[in-house]
Computed example of a mutant assay.
Amino acid sequence: MSKDLTNSAIDRQNVLNNRYALVKAEEHLALGGTTFAGETVFTKAQIVALFNISDATVERYLAAHDEELRLNGYIVLKGTKLKNFKGLVDVSLIGEGNKAPALGVFSFRAVLNLAMLLTESDRAQAIRTRMLDIVMDVLAERAGGQTRFINQRDEAYLPAAYQEFSYRKIFTNALRDCLEMGNIKYGIYTDRIYQVVFKEKSKEYKKILNLAEKDNPRETMYAEVLQAIASIENGLANQMTEKVSTLKRKLAPRELDEMLSDVERNPYLAPQLDAARTRMASRDLHFRDALHQKLESYVQCVPIADFERFLGETSQSLESRLSDPQTLEVFKRLKDR
């Protein structure tokens, strides 16, 4: 999916929140800069030279995108910090601001931010293109080439998958015992729950993620999505059982449909459903390059914590987790509860 970084604040922030891509970018782009207080920074004069733009252009972008650039490391040095910085660099790098009581400098991250905003600079365009390549390389490398199953690298995935499997069994048993309908009911009401949680049927979900017919969609779902599904499955199973006990007969499909409609309107579930939709829409767009059009309004930038969660040191492949004796002990305890 093509990304226009100049027009999308979400896509820009996704790149800038990925510290693994930033480390590789700083190494490979070799943009220069000055080491100050433990990081690489750039003066406005260096930015002008780097991007071959005017001083006025830099000021214009600072004014138009002040909040975003400050979020990503643009700072104004004053007092002792400014004095220390001036002692490190040549006066020519400060320019006309040498006598000024304050000086704005860009961190490496803020320089990349500016490169993703600038439309007047060929160098900025080249950096944007290279950054997208670096992001893809880092993602493939750290996810082991399996972005389809990047959800499974989350340490919360296995407990959530086990929990959902348990409640799925309770729900299918309730469908078997409480609903007056043929075996087609299992597929129909699985889809209905999916539609409540993330507005798509199983076939729609598989198409968006380019899954094979034999692939189990739940093996690609994030922990928050599985937890939302499990909550609905368990609640519906309990409600169906109680209703059948009261009526002394099985339920008609329309009665279960009414229960599902109540679930969709349930204010207690709204925060959990919103969270599941936001996680799915945002992560899939960035990590899997997959757009859930029915969830497009839920797309946000992927937070820094999620890059640690799926690409960081605590993330592992499912095979690695299942080979861990401590993980197996946890599942034994869950099984015996």
Rank of each mutant, 00 (worst) to 15 (best):
S2M: 12
S2A: 12
T6N: 08
N17W: 10
R19S: 14
L29T: 00
T35K: 15
T35C: 11
G38H: 12
E39F: 11
E39C: 10
V41F: 01
T43Y: 00
K44W: 03
N52F: 03
D55P: 01
A56F: 08
L62F: 11
L62P: 00
D66F: 10
L69T: 03
Y74H: 11
G79C: 02
L82F: 05
L82T: 07
K83Y: 02
N84M: 11
F85K: 01
G87L: 09
L88Q: 12
V89H: 05
D90L: 11
V91A: 14
S92G: 04
L93K: 09
P101G: 02
P101I: 03
V105R: 02
S107Y: 06
F108H: 07
L114R: 02
A124S: 06
T129F: 09
R130P: 00
M131I: 05
D137P: 03
Q152H: 08
R153I: 08
A156D: 12
L158G: 03
Q163H: 15
I170N: 12
G182W: 05
N183S: 10
I188L: 13
Y194D: 04
K199N: 09
K201T: 13
K201G: 11
E204M: 02
I208W: 00
L209Y: 03
N210D: 11
E213S: 09
K214R: 13
D215L: 05
P217I: 09
M221T: 05
E224L: 07
V225D: 01
V225S: 02
L226S: 05
A230T: 08
L236K: 09
E242D: 13
K243E: 11
V244P: 02
S245K: 14
T246G: 03
L247V: 05
K248S: 10
K250H: 08
R254S: 13
L260R: 07
S261Y: 09
D262F: 07
Y268W: 08
D274V: 08
A275D: 04
A276M: 01
R277D: 00
L285C: 04
A290Y: 04
L291T: 03
L295F: 01
Q300M: 10
V302G: 05
E308D: 15
L311C: 09
E313R: 14
T314V: 15
S317V: 12
R321F: 13
S323A: 14
Q326Y: 13
T327D: 04
K335H: 15
